[in-house]
Structures are given as structure tokens and as C-alpha cells.
Simulated scan of single mutants.
Amino acid sequence: MEYAKTYTVRWADLDPNIHMRHSAYTDYAAHTRVQFLAEQGFTMARFAQLGIGPILFREDTRFLKEVGLGETIRVTAELSGLNEDGSRWNIVHAIYKEDGRLAATVTVEGAWLDLRARKLAVPPAEISAVMNSISRHASYQDIVRTPREA
């Protein structure tokens, strides 16, 4: 199942060139990820109860088409990588213009942080199950960690 959210570009999303500013693309991608998790029962309050939260190691945005004020965009979230214990994950967000043309992609590499110990953590099984439910991007590859990364 593809997960997607639709947004209308706001005045605050623009830059001096009168098109969507670079950081707005990543804001919409992040909001889409957070909404997906919240809809699965993992709100910020639930993460606080569990003592775990998502973090990013890397974020890469590719800009393909301009997006302007008042345009409707559709932002998808697809899993592009997951390791065996669910502790590391990669997601690709596609941002589409109203006419269906791809405007940008935002690719993120992330993990789960133990909020008390402030160290990387293996998520509870219920979070791993949710992450496994996200549709797979065409580029999906299992994340295999080398002993050095462990």
C-alpha cells in the first residue's frame, strides 16, 4: 500500500525566487513520515511512553521541478531499506506536482534512539511491524551492517 499525503504550498514555504524553498521539501517529507507513524498509533506521546524516537543520519534532496504558491503537492513515503532487527531504515519520499510530474525526491537514512540512554536502539516489535508495512520503493535493499558499524 502506498502511503501519501496531500498539501497546499503556503506563502511561508516560498523563497525569494518565488518558488518552494529547499527546506520546505524536507519539512513536507518529515511531516509525512510523522503522520504515517501517528496514524499507526505512534504519536509523539506514544514514543515518549516507549522511551524511543526516530532520528536521521542523512537526508538527500533532489530537485526536479519548481513548485509554486498555492500548488497542491502529493508526498509519498516508501521503504528503501531496513535491517534485520528493524533498528535502521531508509525511506524515499517522492514529491509530485498536481499534474503528476515528479518535483523532487527526499531520501533519508534513519534509526531509533533510546531517549533515556541517548544511544541507538532496537525498536519494539510493534514498531518493526509498522515499518515493515510501508510499501517498498523500487530501490529497496536490505540494510546489512558490517561488524564495524555494530
Rank of each mutant, 00 (worst) to 15 (best):
A121N: 00
A125N: 03
L37C: 01
T72C: 14
E66V: 01
W89L: 08
N90Y: 01
H93Q: 04
H31P: 01
I95S: 03
R33E: 07
K5T: 14
V130L: 03
D85A: 12
R58H: 13
M131S: 05
E66C: 06
I91N: 05
I134T: 00
I73A: 04
M44Y: 11
L64S: 13
L113E: 07
F36R: 05
E39A: 08
L56C: 10
D15L: 09
R10M: 14
V34P: 08
A138N: 11
S87F: 01
Q141I: 06
L102H: 13
Y96K: 05
P123M: 00
Y96E: 09
I18K: 15
P147M: 08
D13L: 10
D15Q: 10
R101V: 04
Q40Y: 05
A150N: 14
R145Q: 14
S133M: 03
A150F: 14
A29G: 03
Y28E: 04
L69Y: 15
L64A: 13
E59Y: 09
A111V: 07
E78T: 08
L56I: 13
M131K: 02
A45T: 13
R21S: 13
G51Q: 09
E109M: 09
D13E: 05
V122A: 14
A12I: 10
I127G: 01
T26N: 13
K97G: 13
E78F: 05
S139R: 08
I52T: 03
D60W: 11
P54N: 15
A117I: 06
N132H: 12
Y7V: 05
L79P: 00
A117M: 12
I52M: 06
Q40N: 14
N17W: 09
I52Q: 01
A129E: 07
R88Q: 13
A121T: 07
R148M: 14
L50S: 03
V34C: 06
F42E: 01
P124L: 02
A121I: 07
R101Q: 14
G70D: 05
E84D: 15
M20L: 11
E78V: 01
W89P: 00
Q141E: 12
E71P: 11
A150C: 13
A125R: 05
D99G: 07
G41M: 10
Y3N: 04
V67A: 04
E126T: 09
V92F: 03
G51N: 05
V106K: 02
L120S: 13
E109I: 04
I18T: 09
Q35F: 06
A121Q: 00
V75Q: 02
A117N: 10
A111S: 12
D27G: 06
E149C: 04
D27N: 11
A104M: 08
S133K: 04
T61L: 05
P16H: 08
Q40L: 10
M131G: 02
